[in-house]
């Protein structure tokens, strides 16, 4: 546990340093010819949080959410990575990280921050697999499950 806490601290420091470097360097770089990434608009009306806030803090939200979901089984959708992918997958590649212009890849290559999310997580939204062809859709999808209203209520996009 101690190990994890100090690792977390270390990561935070590294992130802060990265963010500081970014703000310090970005304007000069922009004028020096490295064009700022052009991002495709997401599908929804607006992001789950303010855009400026997301630019700085999306990694913290994602990390917090990942631990809650993975270890405790809390499955709110507001800050889920799957939600990001559903909304931000490119209309060209269908992915958030397939080409260097895709949503995640564009900024991360600009900022030179390597991201490991896509080693495991799907970069494309996908319908859940039909485990059994011909089976009726899951209760939660037809709205007959008692969980369905709660799930819909938790959705913010």
């Amino acid at each position: 546990m101690n190990g994890m806490a100090s690792l977390g601290k270390w990561l935070k420091l590294a992130l802060l340093a990265g963010a500081a470097a970014l703000t310090a360097v970005a304007p000069h770089q922009a004028t020096a010819g490295s064009a700022k990434p052009m991002l495709e608009r997401g599908k929804g009306e607006q992001c789950v949080e303010d855009t400026q806030f997301m630019r700085r803090n999306h990694m913290d939200l994602l990390k917090h959410h990942r631990n809650e979901t993975m270890r405790q089984g809390i499955r709110t959708t507001k800050h889920s990575l799957k939600g990001c992918v559903d909304c931000h997958a490119s209309t060209k590649t269908g992915s958030v990280a397939a080409s260097k212009d895709d949503f995640c890849a564009a900024c991360h290559s600009y900022a030179a921050v390597k991201l490991d999310c896509w080693d495991c997580h799907a970069t494309k939204p996908k319908k859940r697999p039909a485990t059994l062809a011909g089976m009726p859709p899951a209760a939660s999808e037809t709205g007959t499950s008692p969980m369905a209203p709660a799930l819909a209520g938790g959705k913010t996009q």
Partner: peptide, 24 residues
Amino acid sequence: AATVLAPGVMLYGIANSRPPEQGA
């Protein structure tokens, strides 16, 4: 929570129903 989806097909909720913000 047991719901009839189609004739002969029953989908049993497994008495777990909890809101998504509640953990296991």
